[in-house]
Design a protein around this nucleic acid. Structure first.
Ligand SMILES: NC(=O)c1ccc[n+]([C@@H]2O[C@H](COP(=O)([O-])OP(=O)(O)OC[C@H]3O[C@@H](n4cnc5c(N)ncnc54)[C@H](O)[C@@H]3O)[C@@H](O)[C@H]2O)c1
Ligand SMILES: NC(=O)c1ccc[n+]([C@@H]2O[C@H](COP(=O)([O-])OP(=O)(O)OC[C@H]3O[C@@H](n4cnc5c(N)ncnc54)[C@H](O)[C@@H]3O)[C@@H](O)[C@H]2O)c1
Lengths: 211, 211
DNA sequence: AAAAAGTCGTGAAATAATTCACGAACGAGT
DNA sequence: ACTCGTTCGTGAATTATTTCACGACTTTTT
C-alpha cells in the first residue's frame, strides 16, 4: 500500500498515461513506443520510459509497449477497478459545472452527493445528483473520503474543518484560500485565477520558451 | 522584457504572493515577515525569501517586509496596471462558470468576448459578456492574445489552430487534449479529471505525507 | 546605551526531476 | 541465419528547486 518509491512528479502523470492508453486501446492499437506517447502527451520520451521503469520492465526492446498489457497494469496501479465516491460542497458556478460533467469518462471517480447552504438549491438534482443542505452534511456524507470544495472563500476553512471531522482525507480545493489541515489529509489546490495570471506572466517574460 | 533569471517555480508563485499581499494591504497591515507569509500561503519561509531575493533586496533585516512597498513592486512586476483581455471559447458548463465569475477580483485579466458553435447560445449575454458565433471569431477577437479553451475535446486542436492564426499567444486549456502549438505560443493545461485522480492516488499511496 | 530578540539575504548542501547517451535485446526483411 | 533498424532500460550527467543555517543588520526592551 505504501509506495514511496514513486517520485511525486511521476505519480502526477500516471492518470494522464492511463487515459491516453485507454484511448489507444479503444482505437484498437496494440503497440506503442515511448516516442509516440511523447508526441501525443508532450512529455519527453526519456521521462516516459523512466516513469514506467519505476514499476518494472514493462516494455520490450526494439518493439515498444503492448497497449493492453500496459493498460491493465496501470488499471491495477491506479485502482481503476474500485470506484471512489466524491462529495461536492458548494453548488454554484463551478460546482454546477462539475456536477453536470461528473468525471465519468475513463474514470473511477464519481460525485455521489452534493451540498449547498442556499435553500433554493437544496432538493434539486443536477446531473442526477441530489443537492442536500449543508446542515445535513454528516447525515449524508457517509464514509466518503474525497471532497471537491467550491464554496465562497470565506467558507473554505470552516467547511474544511467540518469535512475533516466527517472523515474526509482528501480535498480538491478550488477556493483561493490556502486551507489548514492535519497532515494525514491531502489537499490539492487548483487556483484558477493564479493559473490565468501565471500564464500571462510567462507569455510576457519568457518569450519563445519551451513548455 | 526578457527575464530568464526567474526560476519557473518562482514565477508560478508570484500571482499568489500578489493576491495575498493585496489582502494584507486591504486589511491595513503595513508589515509582514516571511514566517507569517509562510503560515498563510503554505510555502516554506526560506522559499519565500529566496523568491523575493531574485528581484533584489526587498525587505529589511530584523523587520520583515513593508506590505505597501512589496505590493507596489509586485504590481509593476506582474503588470497589474495594464489590463489583459481574454477570449473564452466554448460556453458550456465550464465556460459559463468562468463567464459568471470572470476573474475580476484583485485581477488585471478579464474575459472580454466569448464564442460558441451552438446557435442557441449565440447572442445571449452571460455575466455581461456577449456570446458570438465561433464562425465570427476573426471578426470579434481583435488583438486579444489570451484564450481560455473550454470546448469538447474533439474541437480542441482545430480551435487551437484557428486561435493561433488569429494571433493568440497563450492558451489556458481545460480540455483533456494535449494540443500542439508553435513554440512561441504558451499553453497551460488544467486537466481536472487528472487532478482528481491524482489526488486519489496520492491519498492511497502516500499516507501521512506532507503537502 | 547596551543587550536581547527578530528577520532578512544568501552560500552551500540537499533533494528532486529531467535529459543524455548507449548497450542490450528484439523484430523484420532478405 | 544474418543484418539492419528500432526501442527499451538505465547509469551518469545535468538542471531545477528546496531547504539549512548563519552572519549581518534592525528593532525592541530594559
Ligand atoms: N467560478 C469560477 O470561475 C472561479 C474561478 C476561480 C476561483 N473560483 C473560486 O471557486 C469558489 C466557487 O466559485 P463559484 O463561482 O462557483 O461561486 P458561487 O458563489 O457561484 O458558488 C458558491 C456556492 O456555495 C454555496 N455555499 C455558500 N456557503 C456554503 C456553505 N457553508 N456550505 C455549502 N455551500 C455553501 C452558495 O450557496 C453557492 O451556491 C469560490 O471560492 C471562488 O473564489 C471560482
Ligand atoms: N465541466 C467539467 O467539469 C469538466 C471537467 C474536466 C474536463 N472538462 C473538459 O472541459 C471541456 C468543456 O467541458 P464542458 O463540460 O464545459 O463541456 P460542454 O459540452 O458543456 O461545453 C462545450 C461547449 O463548447 C461548444 N462548442 C462545441 N464546438 C465548438 C467550437 N468549435 N467552437 C466553439 N464552441 C464550441 C458547445 O456548444 C458547448 O457549449 C471539455 O473538453 C471537457 O472534457 C470539463
Amino acid at each position: 500500500m505504501v509506495n514511496n518509491k514513486i517520485p511525486q512528479a511521476t505519480a502526477k502523470r500516471l492518470p494522464l498515461y492511463y487515459r491516453f492508453l485507454n484511448n489507444l486501446h479503444i482505437q484498437g492499437k496494440d503497440r506503442v513506443s515511448s516516442k509516440e506517447l511523447s508526441n501525443a502527451m508532450k512529455v519527453d520520451s526519456a521521462t516516459i520510459r523512466r516513469d514506467f521503469s519505476y514499476f518494472g520492465a514493462l516494455g520490450k526492446k526494439g518493439y515498444g509497449y503492448n497497449v493492453d498489457y500496459l493498460l491493465g497494469f496501470f488499471r491495477k496501479t491506479l485502482d481503476q477497478d474500485e470506484n471512489t465516491p466524491v462529495a461536492l460542497i458548494g453548488v454554484g458556478n463551478l460546482g454546477t459545472a462539475f456536477l453536470n460533467y461528473n468525471f465519468t469518462k475513463n474514470n473511477n471517480t464519481k460525485i455521489e452527493v452534493a451540498f449547498d447552504a442556499d435553500p433554493s438549491k437544496v432538493g434539486k438534482s443536477i446531473g442526477k445528483i441530489e443537492v442536500h443542505h449543508v446542515d445535513d452534511l454528516e447525515a449524508h456524507i457517509g464514509d466518503i473520503q474525497v471532497a471537491i470544495l467550491t464554496v465562497p472563500v470565506s467558507e473554505a476553512q470552516p467547511m474544511t474543518d467540518r469535512l475533516i471531522q466527517s472523515g474526509v482525507k482528501g480535498i480538491l480545493n478550488f477556493t483561493p484560500a490556502r486551507i489548514t489541515v492535519p497532515n494525514d489529509v491531502r489537499v490539492h489546490h487548483i487556483d484558477l485565477a493564479v493559473e490565468l495570471q501565471s500564464l500571462v506572466y510567462f507569455m510576457k517574460h519568457y518569450p519563445l520558451d519551451v513548455e
